[in-house]
Design a binder for these strands. Sequence first.
DNA 1: AGGGAAACCCGAACGC
DNA 2: TGCGTTCGGGTTTCCC
Length: 269
Amino acid sequence: MPELPEVETIARGLKDGLIGKTILEADVFWARTLAIPTVRKFKEQIRGQKITGVSRRAKYLIIQLKNYNLLVHLRMSGDLLLRESKINPNKHDRLVLRLSGKYDLAFNDTRKFGRVWFTDDPQSILKKLGPEPLEKGFTADWLYKNLQSRKRQLKPLLLDQTFIAGLGNIYTDESLNIAKLHPLAQADTVKPTQAKALHQAIQSVLKEGIRRNGASIDWVYRGGDFQNHFRVYDQEGKPCPACGTEIIKFTVGQRGTHICPRCQVLERK
DNA sequence: AGGGAAACCCGAACGC
DNA sequence: TGCGTTCGGGTTTCCC
């Protein structure tokens, strides 16, 4: 794993470093990072904008400007770095915002999967998202009712950000294992007690992920520790922590899927 | 509406 | 050693 460079990550105070600063200039090194019509217009419009707030919705980071919003999705390998101003970009820098003061905000993204939206109407992008799994609206009762109305396979549904916003592949596999549910179970066959277990599992897995600063898989997401505590994800052939049965891996909706075949049984109707 | 597949990416890991 | 292939993550788009 690479050593932590001279950066501030989100968790280490990006917010404090951004609010109140003015964007002097935007350097675009990979235009497809930006979900905007033209780079020229973007640079023109963002110049002189003051950063008024930093927040989050689902997997989007929201950098509020005076008249616009920047929505940042890091996807797989993206990173936001606040670092001392310098002339030359780092390897894999896709967008660098030159700020007032002595820092730049760099969007660095090895795999070019991440995206940045620049818009005066963030709701046009955010309104379709499902509830935050750690907030009030997401209850066991809500989950049961909404599973009841769907016929989809459980795992693809949980990964659907318009259903619940925030679960990715790792967290979904871990949650289903804790709740002892099969990823291919049809959503409307989940019973109230199972929905309650799933609700509990989702919240505990996400909280643990946050507590451990996320998972560092491959060489990305530096600093996380959750990868050392997976129950099933990437544990093919290893014993299930609950019953010792070997974890198996297969594909669901084009995604690598890991289960304990003993704890997570697909009930056929 | 649901499901499958392809596309977007590239560094690491693997096979030969 | 080198070279080719496969993999995987999140999301959108397209097609059945």
